[in-house]
Design a protein around this nucleic acid. Structure first.
Lengths: 126, 126
DNA sequence: ATTATAATTGAATTTATATTCAACTGTCAA
DNA sequence: TTGACAGTTGAATATAAATTCAATTATAAT
């Protein structure tokens, strides 16, 4: 147990060994920020609804707007957001842009998160 | 193609069939919001760093503060956040509270997200 | 050409979230 | 029983993200 040198945290490092070990094993900051950004793309109910919808069928912006009962503008902003994170892709067809899921990772992550939530619910009940 | 009845979206539903189909297949709102909340718990670099750290070893609040170079208060707030979402758990040991990951889903989701990011990076380069 | 519709965009606004700050609780040791 | 430290808490502040609004682009139909 040694006093921490840094100016910010007002505490001792109690378990020097573990901390040293963990520091060595942890991913670099850039990767961790990148991962957080990936989750940010999924961390909004509008975007989750869009993903759930596109998992069932490809759709244009108007379809999604009608489905979620939101303006085209709001939907379009979120679609750009999802596209940037490469979770969905769009192809132009006349006046419309038809969106669909980008790849299978999205589906996989979705499945696991649902499992986690089911178990968390079960636990909380008894 | 019919004019959408709802007052909010300023558009037609172009692909009636798909929209009807998707509406039937989609998860209920409550579940989707719940899933988004799960991702919200992961959608912050501080929390991701905490999870990455706890994946390597259990740690107390001071350890994590020293490791991430942040105040105990900020860390504690985020720990409560993660605990509420059942991603981590804490046990008391004297004056300290030792935190660790709650279960394996967290690890699984983490793995898949890293895969996705790797492939997204690869795509964007070539 | 002109009009109508699908979609996007940027700025403004609103809303949500993270961090700080100060005060507090619980536990240990002198 | 007092002091020191680990940790938590709530309110205030700072920061980030979602939605709205108004304007714009692109395509298709008249």
């Amino acid at each position: 147990m040694t006093k921490c040198k840094c100016a910010i945290c007002d505490c001792n490092t109690i378990h020097d060994e573990q901390v040293k070990l963990v520091k060595k094993k942890m991913l670099d900051d850039e990767s961790l920020i990148c991962i957080a950004d990936f989750y940010k793309a999924l961390a909004d109910s509008t975007r989750i609804k869009i993903i759930n919808a596109l998992d069932k069928s490809e759709l244009c912006v108007c379809d999604i707007s009608a489905l979620l009962n939101m303006t085209k503008s709001a939907i379009s902003h979120q679609l750009q957001n999802l596209k940037e994170m490469r979770l969905i892709k769009g192809r132009k067809s006349g006046k419309e842009v038809i969106y669909s899921l980008a790849d299978d990772h999205v589906r996989q992550v979705f499945e696991i998160s649902m499992q986690h939530i089911k178990e968390a619910k079960r636990e909380s009940k008894g």
